[in-house]
Simulated assay, not measured.
Amino acid sequence: MLKQKPLLDKKVLVPRGKDQAKSFSQLVERFGGIPVEIPLLAFRPIEKNQRLQDCLQALDTYDWLIFTSNVTVETFFSFLKNDAGSVLPKIAVIGKRTEEVLKEKGVQADFVPSTYVAEAFVEELLPIIESGSKVLIPKGNLAREYIATALTEAGAQVDEVVIYETYLPVENRLKLAQMIAERQLDILTFTSPSTVDHFMEVVKEHGLDEQLSNLIIGCIGPVTEKKLIEYGLTVHASPKEYTVNEMIKSTIAYLEMEES
């Protein structure tokens, strides 16, 4: 049984932006921790270009539209604002939050996988998608190509279109470097491979590898875990259910085990 405040006074890195960080930080606080909000990812829509314009105008010719994150949903619908009459194809989503944001837009997902990773998504979607089906995948500039490649190999016609850029704001880089250098963090949490890459860019730039040695690390998903291991970091908490809630619980379980 967990102690009432298992994260008591521990400073936990919350790597999400202001809009997404609130529930994450509240969870940390509920268990007695001190959330340190430093968004490791920021997003900005790309300038509307001919490629994007062509995909939006041909939206009714696609059989499937795939959203891999809530950011892709938000950004995609922002581009649709001036085209309210667009006919949407069937929609497949990865992630509980992605599905929720889609519902907030008044749209129901036609397919949601049992687990929220690309590999499981493809395995469960393939039997549903007919060979020759047209699929559109809006994505960020750093997104993996696994889904598009797998569907293409299975005979689908896949178009990928970059709709937003991922970056780490300068002020966040400086704040993160200072916090690590002054050993102001106890627990690091990572929600995607991109958060790991941006974090390690700062670590390498400022020569802070040594300051990471005693930190506890939790993450969401096997791809994020793999990325951490590639950097030579030890992952202490990586739950089977890929949610922030389970990551925090898994981190607490590790702490309890260490104490006992």
Rank of each mutant, 00 (worst) to 15 (best):
A120G: 14
E47S: 13
K96W: 05
D63W: 02
S78H: 12
T98E: 00
Q57R: 15
V28F: 03
E119S: 08
L41V: 06
E119H: 06
Q26I: 04
D110K: 03
V87R: 15
G95L: 01
L27P: 02
E100F: 08
K22H: 15
L13Q: 04
F77I: 13
S86T: 15
S23G: 06
V71L: 04
S23C: 08
S78T: 11
G85R: 14
E119R: 04
E99Y: 00
P15L: 05
T115P: 00
P39R: 03
L59F: 06
K18S: 14
K96I: 08
N82A: 11
A118P: 06
K96N: 12
G32Y: 07
K18T: 14
K105T: 04
D83Q: 15
G17D: 11
F111C: 02
F67S: 00
S69I: 00
L59T: 09
D110L: 05
L41C: 05
L80N: 09
N82I: 05
F24C: 02
V87A: 15
K103C: 10
F79S: 06
G33I: 05
V87T: 15
L52Q: 07
Q50I: 13
N82M: 10
S78E: 14
D60T: 14
V73Y: 01
E47C: 09
F31L: 09
K105W: 03
F77K: 08
E99V: 00
T72E: 02
E119Y: 02
F67D: 00
V117Y: 01
K18W: 10
A109L: 07
Q50S: 15
A58Y: 07
K103P: 05
N49L: 09
N49G: 11
E37R: 09
T61R: 11
G106D: 07
I66S: 04
R51Y: 14
F31N: 03
D83R: 14
G106W: 04
V122W: 01
L41R: 03
D19F: 10
L102T: 05
V71Y: 07
K81G: 11
Q57W: 13
Q108C: 12
L80G: 08
F76C: 03
V71I: 14
Q26K: 12
P45L: 05
I91G: 09
V107P: 05
D110A: 08
E100R: 11
K81P: 06
P39G: 03
E47I: 12
S114D: 10
S86K: 15
L59N: 05
K81H: 13
L41Q: 08
E74G: 08
A92K: 00
V28C: 07
D110E: 12
K48R: 14
R30C: 10
L40R: 03
P35C: 12
A118S: 15
Q57N: 15
G85C: 12
N49W: 08
T75W: 01
Q20G: 07
A58T: 12
I46Y: 09
N49A: 09
E74H: 10
T72H: 02
K48N: 12
L65R: 02
D54L: 13
Q20I: 02
T75Y: 01
P15W: 03
S25P: 05
V101F: 00
F76L: 03
A109P: 12
